[in-house]
């Protein structure tokens, strides 16, 4: 009774064993973090082997948990090693003046993110916003972004309660949740992406 599911499970488990063996041998702290990020992919693959619509809905939490822990641990690593941004001196090479990237790329990304909405849209829109911040070098109004993220969080929780206690208003619930999660994920990812670059 070697069905397709068992064959797939065997392949994924073997790749997980390879990853864990690498983890067993590695001594360097940073490399350990990177290998763990790699080892998490087999766990997503095992969820995907389920092959139903439920699997697609379960992959998203699994992926987000991995990203969140990677984010926290990398910041702990930076603090523990005492890494700081050190300006490089003594290099005087003539370079062509840096030009701004065209605004059309972030605009397209943010626009497509708003069309998608929800988690996926939030991630795409955040990519556009990070690109804009990096290419323009503007770092102001973080408080505004944080506040938008908090309000969006509240909107999403309100939509959850609408679904649970007033299911006849499902339309308001799905719109509130889609917009709330879009803004929340986009804001948080943008902050993460831009904050880390400007440590001074």
């Amino acid at each position: 009774m070697w069905n397709e599911y068992s064959v797939g499970l065997a392949l994924v488990m073997i790749s997980a064993v390879i990853g864990f063996l690498a983890l067993l041998r590695e001594q360097d702290d940073l490399h350990r973090l990177l290998i763990i990020d790699l080892v998490e992919i087999p766990s997503l693959a095992i969820i995907a082997l389920l092959g139903t619509d439920l699997a697609e809905a379960l992959i998203l939490p699994g992926l987000v948990v991995g990203i969140a822990e990677l984010l926290a641990l990398s910041q702990i690593y930076v603090t523990k090693e005492g890494l700081r941004k050190r300006p490089v001196r003594g290099l005087h090479i003539e370079v062509v003046e840096r030009a701004h990237a065209p605004v059309i790329i972030p605009a397209l990304l943010v626009g497509y993110g708003i069309v998608l909405s929800g988690f996926t849209g939030g991630a795409v829109a955040a990519l556009g916003a990070i690109f804009f911040v990096i290419s323009r070098g503007s770092t102001d109004s973080y408080e505004l972004v944080e506040m938008a993220s908090g309000i969006a969080w509240a909107a999403w929780i309100a939509s959850f309660f609408v679904f649970m206690f007033f299911p006849q208003y499902w339309y308001a619930g799905v719109m509130g949740a889609a917009v709330g999660i879009l803004v929340k994920v986009a804001a948080k990812m943008t902050l993460v992406g831009s904050m880390w670059g400007e440590a001074e």
Binding site: A57, P61, L71, A72, Q75, A177, K184, V192, M195
Partner: peptide, 28 residues
């Protein structure tokens, strides 16, 4: 996917965004 994530298994998404929030709080 919206049906599962927001409605029938909405509590999963609440916990998941909370994990993201806690990790972000530690980082920041």
């Amino acid at each position: 996917l919206d049906e599962i994530l927001y409605n029938t298994r909405g509590l999963d998404t609440v916990v998941e965004t909370t994990i993201l929030f806690i990790a972000f709080a530690i980082g920041s």
